[in-house]
């Protein structure tokens, strides 16, 4: 079979691509130019790309679950997580029981200017307090603003997608994102630093639900 010269074939490839980009429609509407559909690029500020659910965009903090155990901070390869916490006395779980000590988070900052997006902190967290979300629009003109505090990290919780189902043959169990409505969240944002006491009390009420797990957090900061 005689072969076309490569020079002509190359021209054919570029011409074909141009035609496909300019006239992507089929059938009757072939001749209507629609490069917006034909091109593969996403015109970023005008249209947004949807990353997959597992995409490591930004880390969200579910503060109720955090016990300030420092595991994430210690496992971070570039040590960009800053945690401070204190212990508060909590009422006993059952009437007549012993009073408990519970760790409260005062400060939970992630410096996204340092973060390498490796995801180790999310993996090591034993209490389901950290989650990845695919959000990616949080660039800042000032580098210091990339330090997200616990309030900001908590806001990302709304964007955490549900965990995906697994492919056939997998033995992994699909985890669940903790139920978390915005109404639970609103009072926590309003609390100032000096409201730690009432803050603690409020959060203890919600902590009752998964108290068993929290008891395991004896090795606080």
């Amino acid at each position: 079979m005689p072969q076309l010269p490569g020079l002509l074939k190359g021209l054919g490839v570029t011409a074909r691509t141009a035609a496909r980009t300019l006239f992507p429609k089929r059938g009757m509407r072939t001749l209507i130019p629609a490069p917006q559909q034909g091109s593969v690029t996403v015109q970023y500020p005008h249209e947004k790309e949807a990353p997959p659910d597992r995409a490591r965009g930004v880390i969200a903090l579910h503060e109720e679950n955090c016990t300030a155990c420092m595991l994430c901070s210690r496992s971070c390869p570039d040590w960009c997580i800053y945690i401070e916490g204190h212990k508060v006395k909590a009422p006993p779980r059952r009437a007549g029981g012993k009073a408990r000590t519970v760790n409260m988070v005062d400060r939970f900052d992630i410096d996204y200017a340092l973060c390498m997006y490796c995801g180790i902190c999310v993996d090591v967290c034993p209490f389901d307090a950290l989650f990845w979300t695919p959000e990616y629009e949080y660039s800042e003109p000032n580098i210091a603003d990339l330090l997200h505090d616990r309030i900001r990290l908590g806001e990302w919780m709304e964007t955490v997608p549900e965990f995906q189902a697994y492919e056939q043959g997998s033995e992994q169990k699909v985890r669940a994102v903790p139920d978390f409505g915005p109404e639970d969240f609103a009072p926590a944002r309003k609390l100032g630093a000096d409201d730690a006491e009432s803050d603690g009390a409020r959060r203890l009420a919600s902590a009752e639900s998964d108290g068993a797990r929290r008891l395991a957090s004896g090795d606080g900061s």
């Binding site: 691509t17 141009a18 980009t21 490069p35 091109s39 690029t41 015109q43 005008h46």
Partner: peptide
């Protein structure tokens, strides 16, 4: 424009 179309792009918008 033509270069962009030949490369599956849109060019300046």
């Amino acid at each position: 424009k033509m270069m962009a179309f030949m490369q599956s792009r849109l060019g300046p918008q």
